[in-house]
Amino acid sequence: MRSLILKEIDELIYGSLGIIIFISFFIGGVVSIQTALNITNPLIPRNLIGFATRQSVILEFAPTFTSIIMAGKVGSYITSSIGTMRVTEQIDALEVMGVNSLNYLVFPKIIAMLMYPFAIAIAMYVGILGGWIAGVFGGFSSSADFVEGLQLDFIPYHVVYSFIKTILFALVIATVPSFHGYYMKGGALEVGKASTTAFVWTSVVIIILNYILTQLLLG
């Protein structure tokens, strides 16, 4: 079981770091530029760019936006890999051998996804870094103003809130696609359909859960 969990961490988390870093860097940069371009009043301090980037990235872009992307990347992978095993009777083979197939296939994925907050922590860091690079090297803000904005009115609970969301999103990303893959019926075409359905439902659950958690934890 330990080797299975390590394999899943490699495939689900480590294998997704590239896309997470890429997206976070540019999203952070865009947030920084958009904020700068919308500050037209000279009375508004320039440190708002760093402040807005930090808040946007930590509260929403890193945990929620990245999770929607992961629902597509990791969720589709989970549904299609388990669904293909169903179609090709590999799950039946596990059952005949006396292996609890649900436990064997899904449990390691749930445990592996508990590492997801580490990926989101990287997304937060890279997102803010992207914002800083875009803001400073784009000529929208000085480095000192940006860093001052990053430190302005920082509430550590916002990071806690963000990680609580991340853990729950990780469970959704592991379980909803697994359900759609494990209980699918049909052939190769249905594997594709199940992957699409799994992505849609995972995204819907994440967005609704995001609303409920924000209301409960920050409202």
Partner: peptide, 8 residues
């Protein structure tokens, strides 16, 4: 199994 059902 009919399709062998080997683990890919």
């Amino acid at each position: 199994f009919q399709g062998s059902a080997l683990f890919d």
